[in-house]
């Protein structure tokens, strides 16, 4: 049972090597390499912003702002894990500032109204492209919220960076890391899979 080829491009050793090489080149001033990083890591940052409760427009602004801020800081970032940690931390902080600014704008009387446009889709009953996706979505919905958020973000990252992400999200130790961690183990448990079961993602 192997990872489908398309997934090796979005996560895994191949992607991580690409990020490492691009980071080195970008630190040397290679703008094309910076574009490569933007392409590889923007999806992860999108989900960081959205999982902090921002609408789509604000999430676009926050992600763009994070990349712009990276340009002045990149000289101090030594390796892909440090880069991922910096990006996630920065995106999260910017998202909080935006969310706080919105709260400050709302007069007290309308506090109950959800005035945001297109908020992050809450895990709900929805049917996805196939049964396996729908089932996985249902299971994700039953994860504790912090685990839900963590799993959502590490799904777009590579294993060596899990620690940095967990730290950037202020997750308790043992949530994820060099070992499987409680969140992923919980997801496996809820999915009802084990190694012999041979659960495989159908493309």
């Amino acid at each position: 049972m192997s990872i489908p080829e398309s997934s090796a491009k979005v996560r895994g050793p191949e992607r991580r090597e690409r990020v490492a090489a691009a980071l080195l080149a970008a630190r040397g001033g290679d703008r094309h390499a910076l574009d490569e990083l933007v392409k590889d890591l923007t999806p992860m940052l999108w989900h960081v912003a959205r999982s902090q409760g921002l609408d789509r427009e604000d999430s676009v602004d926050v992600v763009q702002g994070t990349w712009l801020a990276l340009v002045s800081s990149i000289a101090t970032i030594r390796d892909p894990s440090a880069l991922v940690g910096w990006l996630v931390t920065t995106t999260r902080r910017r998202a909080w500032r935006v969310a706080a600014a919105h709260r400050a704008e709302l007069p007290a009387a309308t506090e109950d109204l959800d005035v945001r446009a297109d908020p992050d889709p809450a895990v709900d009953d929805r049917v996805l492209a196939d049964e396996q996706r729908t089932r996985l979505w249902e299971v994700i919905a039953t994860l504790p919220p912090l685990c839900q958020q963590l799993i959502r973000i590490v799904a777009f990252a590579d294993r060596p960076d899990y620690d940095a992400i967990s730290h950037a999200l202020d997750m308790p130790r043992g949530s994820i890391g060099p070992t499987r961690g409680r969140c992923l183990a919980k997801l496996r448990q809820l999915l009802g899979v084990d190694q012999e079961g041979g659960w495989q993602w159908q493309r």
Binding site: M1, I3, L136, I140, R152, F156, R188, V193, W201
Partner: peptide
């Protein structure tokens, strides 16, 4: 298997 599951999660999101 963890890799498979996480890839699935990324596809779902």
């Amino acid at each position: 298997l963890d890799e498979q599951i996480l890839y699935g999660v990324s596809e779902v999101w």
